[in-house]
Design a protein around this nucleic acid. Structure first.
Length: 360
DNA sequence: CAATCGTGGAC
DNA sequence: TGTCCAAGATT
């Protein structure tokens, strides 16, 4: 095995991407970027990172913000537990570490939202410690470089790859090396049609020597994603500050946790309009009359798909203020305030359509 | 510990 | 239209 480590480091010096978080000296910026980059592409993260650092420039400012505001800035990035965990972790750091992010992987990994990868990334990149990382890029690069035939998402494969990541880590340059592996995976050692002719360590690549680059990494078979049908209600009234619409807040755990949505429910197998009235009665104790269909939205989440039928509906019984206060999950929201209520993609589409319509 | 958790781009 | 998959963590 030729020395791929020094060649990779040399390649990185010349091809290092100029990413926003690489221009900060602050460990907080590295932390934010690593959380945002979990399962998310660099190009997607960049504008979110810039906005986030503008709105929450310090750990203290993040800790002091409301969850609603944090989620609003995160809206559209997905995996919203990342935002809630980052928010909580900032509060822990302020309360227990005097606002200073700890530097050891052990302490980092005790903070919500920081697992083995992220702890290694922060420790090596922000604090210069000799800690390995294993992300999707490193998995792919090492699975090819060492021709690992274990499934990378199996327990044995994971253990083998972490072992390799630690074994070849150059002492004193772990941060650079980890980023070099990830940049190589993102620019050269691509999942499909890897650019082996441009690869600085192609000579060392066992999978290439054996002609099985595109067969690596091996993955466990994936399960089929189910398909659900939902109906959602757009319920509008005239308030003293103009038009309002009824929104529901989702529970803070689980899918789209803490986000707002138009009252909805599953109507699998039923007539969408009839199913809407009954599901709203069951889930929110709302009595509505469906008035008109507004359209249909198809959407894919990570492990299922939905078709959402959207209806205009009117309340048959008013929503009493006492109940609106007691049951904070239901709220009349002025059209002009809709932007402050964090929503998932489907509901943001509905909200935007609603605003567009009422302008004309 | 296998299932859960979003969204967008590439092909 | 469908499938893969991306700087993973949590339960």
């Amino acid at each position: 095995m030729i020395d791929f480590v020094s060649r990779l480091l040399r390649w990185y010096e010349q091809h290092r991407r100029n990413l926003p978080w690489r221009n900060y000296l602050d460990s907080y910026a590295i932390w934010v970027s690593e959380i945002m980059l979990q399962q998310t592409r660099v190009e997607t993260v960049i504008p979110y990172f810039e906005r986030w650092m503008e709105r929450f420039p310090t750990i203290q400012s993040l800790a002091a913000a409301s969850e609603q505001e944090v989620l609003a800035v995160w809206e559209g990035l997905g995996y919203y537990s990342r935002a809630r965990n980052l928010h909580r972790a900032a509060q822990v750091v302020v309360e227990r570490f005097e606002g200073v992010l700890p530097s050891s992987v052990e302490a980092l990994q005790r903070l919500p939202g920081i697992g083995r990868y992220t702890a290694g990334a922060i420790a090596s990149i922000a604090f210069g410690q000799d800690e390995p990382v294993l992300d999707g890029n490193v998995r792919r690069v090492y699975a090819r470089l060492f021709d690992v035939n274990l499934a990378v998402d199996s327990r044995e494969g994971e253990a083998e790859l972490w072992k390799l990541a630690a074994e070849y880590l150059p002492k004193g340059r772990a941060g650079e090396f980890n980023q070099a592996l990830m940049d190589l995976g993102a620019a050269i050692c691509l999942p499909r049609r890897p650019r082996c002719l441009l690869c600085p360590i192609a000579d060392s690549c066992l999978a290439r020597q054996r002609g099985v680059v595109e067969e690596r990494p091996v993955r466990l078979p994936q399960v089929n994603t189910p398909h659900y049908v939902q109906s959602a209600a757009v319920i509008v009234k005239r308030g003293r500050h103009g038009l309002c619409t009824l929104l529901a807040k989702r529970p803070s755990e689980g899918l789209l946790g803490g986000l707002w949505e138009f009252p909805n429910g599953r109507v699998d197998g039923e007539e969408p309009a009839r199913g809407l009235a009954s599901t709203l009665r069951e889930q929110y104790r709302l009595e509505v009359q469906v008035e008109a269909g507004l359209g249909m939205i198809r959407h894919a989440y990570s492990h299922f798909r939905v078709t959402v039928h959207v209806f205009q509906a009117k309340l048959l019984r008013p929503l009493y203020r006492a109940r609106e206060q007691r049951d904070a999950s239901l709220k009349w929201v002025s059209f002009s305030d809709l932007g402050e209520y964090p929503m998932g993609k489907v509901d943001r589409r509905i909200a935007t359509t609603l605003l567009t319509r009422c302008m004309s």
